[in-house]
Design a protein around this nucleic acid. Sequence first.
DNA 1: AAGACGAAAGTGGTTGA
DNA 2: TCAACAACTTTCGTCTT
Length: 317
Amino acid sequence: MVTLERDKKGGADREEGEGKGNTDGEEGVKECPECGSKGLIRDYGKAEIFCANCGLVIMENIVDLGPEWRAFDSEQMSRRTRVGAPMTYRIHDKGLSTIVNWGSPGQGQYKLKKLQQRTHIANTTERSFIFALSEIDRMACALRLPVNIREAASMLYRRAMKKRLIRGRSIEGITTALLYIACRQYGVPRTLEEVREISRVGQKEISRAYRFLLRELDLKVSPASPVDFVPRFCSLLNLSGDIRSKAIEIIKKATEAELTNGRGPIGIAAAAIYIAAILSGEHRTQKEVSDATGVTEVTIRNRYKELSEQLEIDVLL
DNA sequence: AAGACGAAAGTGGTTGA
DNA sequence: TCAACAACTTTCGTCTT
């Protein structure tokens, strides 16, 4: 009954706008066109290159960026799936699909019914697993995350399933938290707010699942560095590479001076960018920085006062 | 009028008894 | 489980450009 048919027509109907489709020659790519970082990760297994800093996928042969739809059951999944990738953790049976034949109507039916009863539990967990994978894909898509991170999140979900951690919890909460964790592990952190916006559950549930999974899967996630947020925030604010490196420099000095202890990394990043922009004559208002980073103007002010005073940076308007 | 400033009260998460 | 606590937010009046 579950016949997974692979539809080989890639995602030709789906061309990303926003002018980010950089399809120049692969050999020429030395740095990220988005943030200028040299930290490009070439994943030849997936035939793609992405920026470790901002997560921008620069080169990708797998055209399909994942489904924009939601599969509620196996049937929908099979009808709508158009993923032609090699074996992957993102496909619920690792791509090795089983085809069940209906056989001759006479005696076959009874056996099949029996089989279906026996495997009923397996089918429901499988169905929710498929749903989880499509959720991970949907959210990763919305956040423009590279395939590696989706893979990582999917693998974590497998581990959670093996440990029977899913039962009795919302799949949305678990998948959102796992994606959040995967981003952190890959040094491309998203803010909790960004993740919440594209999730179907609230912040409270995400946090609960996050703590739960860290504990139960024995994962270690080091606190995010403010530096990790700088490239993305800078590009949101249309700031040049000069400012990006200047902001990172400020953050490094601040870290050495232990000004960052106990402070939220996002606030530090926001303040450093604010200062760097002013120093470079590309002024951004506190409001603009606040909107891009999600921290309030008050916090930006507090951090930027601390940084400029302690590091003796003269910020003259 | 817009931006920057800072005081004061409120909120949600962490910690330690 | 509860209370104390620090970081951050909200709100709002004032000053500066």
